[in-house]
């Protein structure tokens, strides 16, 4: 079989060109793989930083005995833009949570009549005792603020990620 004239004139060896493109593709794939590793490392660093941030300085958020049973006090913790709510349930226990709904970040409110936290935007419902999702679209529990009642007032002492705790202790699912 004779070689066409143009093949002699144009010195392109297709096999060689394929070799180069494969090597370049390999390089590109490895660099993308490195990018994925960088993404995972970034997540790991962020998780470590969040773990460190969970040990925060205590902050006084309410006067002694406040709020009254069945009432709510608003505060910000740990940063001034992090709005939270402190609830004293009818049985006298204090519970504090981030006020930002885990669905689309609307502000959740305490419903004293139903003794639960409700998001008015999309009818998300959270347990006032555990922060667990009881109903609606929120994908995660509310982050809980650890509180401590001292002689001179109520203190926020840290932020805990919302666990998927058993909401059955609330008895009002749905």
């Amino acid at each position: 079989m004779t070689t066409p004239l143009w093949r002699d004139e144009v010195s392109i060896r297709s096999a060689d060109e394929r070799y180069v493109s494969r090597r370049q593709l390999g390089k590109f794939l490895v660099l993308t793989s490195l990018g994925m590793l960088a993404g995972n490392t970034w997540l790991l660093i962020k998780a470590g930083l969040r773990g460190a941030a969970a040990r925060l300085a205590p902050a006084r958020i309410a006067a002694p005995g406040e709020p009254a049973r069945g009432a709510v006090a608003l505060f910000t913790y740990p940063e001034p833009e992090d709005r939270c709510l402190l609830v004293r349930t009818p049985d006298g226990q204090l519970h504090a949570f981030s006020q930002k709904c885990t669905h689309l970040s609307c502000a959740v409110v305490y419903s004293a009549a139903r003794d639960r936290l409700e998001c008015p935007c999309h009818d998300g419902v959270f347990s006032v005792r555990t922060g667990a999702v009881l109903a609606g679209p929120p994908p995660r529990p509310l982050p809980r603020i650890a509180v401590e009642e001292r002689a001179d007032g109520v203190y926020a002492i840290g932020v805990e990620d919302g666990d998927d705790g058993d909401p059955s202790d609330d008895g009002d699912r749905g």
Partner: peptide
Amino acid sequence: YLAGHRDSALVGAITSAVLFAGS
């Protein structure tokens, strides 16, 4: 991680590092 399980970040990073070593 976004669901609040921070421990999974370490497992993910190790797995990703092993896969990167392979690639």
